Amino acid sequence: MMDSSKQSLLNSQKDMSEQVYEKNQESDPPLHKTYRTLFEKQQMENHDVIVEEHELPLIDLHILKAGRQEREKCIRNMAKASSEWGFFQVVNHGISTDLLKRMSNEQAKVFRQPFEKKAKEKLLDFSLETYRWGAPSATNLQQLSWSEAFHIPLAKCSDSSYSDNTLRRTINEYAAAVSDLAQQLAQLLTENLGFRTSYFAQNCGPSSCYLRLNRYPPCPVSSEVCGLISHTDSDFLTILHQDQVGGLQLKKDGKWITVKPNQKALIVNIGDLFQAWSNDAYKSVEHRVMTNRKVERFSVAFFLCPSYDTIIETCRRPAIYRKFTFEEFRQQVQEDVRSMGHKIGLPRFLV
């Protein structure tokens, strides 16, 4: 048997090594400390998976003003990308470089506040803002998102009582600009289907849309941990402004591909509701964000959503999906995540 002095020394060395290990894995928010049991339960291979990098289809919105034929071709290209990729990127989109830069700078400032302050205080001065990090319901590493985010419903963005807050003022300005862009793109994609409708203007106003400010901290633990796990978006359209770190991946033809960042472009992707509304003319595809071992990544996502009581019914026949409300869709997604650990989405609503 080992004498007590040797056992005590070994225990002391173990405690010291664990302290050093935890210190090396410290992050803000405390992701590794919080989810350490998941890493202990599941052995992960710590290697980089090689995924081919591609540029998304590029749409120059300035061409919309170049003449009728050029405009129609631009819309067709946008629709083709929405069908074949579920993603495209836009340049000359009307949102100034200065505004995008200010949004990025202000976002970085708020995320670099201490974790305790982010978790307990309303740093953005929005009464409905929600600070989120990790994945509270994760039972394995495949369900863990190595990230933090501020979820901001736009319902309170126009409150002028916060006009002296630089971050608040920047968010208001950005939200107004990106909302206009989303409405324009939704209308153009609808026009390609042969419809002229006020559906999106009537149902997807500021009271139902939202922004999400994202930060993906460096992840030294494993290259296989996602910054944001694989998912499809439960909206009509998402518009993403990201930095140049990269990490966004999408699934095309059954394979994951990495999206090459474009400093001048905003990324647009189709959500579940648009796929259902277009009767599968446009596709909502799986995508995820991979972590970076050394560099943090920032992005801002705008989600074009309808009110909860809005009826989603296809504009084409025969219908692939039964009609449903956005509230019904959200509730089904939440129920599936709780009971099964992942989202099912549109297959639940097939005719």
Rank of each mutant, 00 (worst) to 15 (best):
E328P: 04
D243P: 02
L237Q: 04
A149P: 01
S230E: 03
Y216I: 11
R68V: 14
F88E: 13
E191S: 07
P30W: 03
S223F: 09
T238R: 06
R196K: 13
F326T: 04
S198E: 00
S179G: 09
S208E: 04
T170A: 01
A176M: 10
A135F: 07
F111T: 08
P306H: 03
L58R: 02
D272F: 06
Q69S: 14
E22V: 05
R68C: 14
E313P: 05
T170F: 01
D28W: 00
L181G: 08
N165A: 00
S198V: 02
N24P: 06
R215M: 15
F349P: 05
V91L: 03
L31R: 06
E129V: 02
G194A: 01
F115N: 12
Y35W: 14
S163I: 11
N46R: 06
G205K: 05
D280Q: 02
F150T: 03
R322V: 01
Q42N: 09
F236T: 01
T166S: 13
L266I: 08
P153M: 08
P347H: 04
Q25P: 03
R169L: 02
C226Y: 06
S96I: 11
R132P: 13
V90K: 00
D60I: 04
V91N: 09
L38Q: 08
F326W: 05
V289Y: 06
L346C: 03
T190R: 02
M103G: 10
N172L: 07
S230I: 02
V221G: 06
A281D: 07
V49G: 07
L31V: 13
D15C: 11
R330V: 01
E335N: 00
P347Q: 06
S284C: 01
E121W: 01
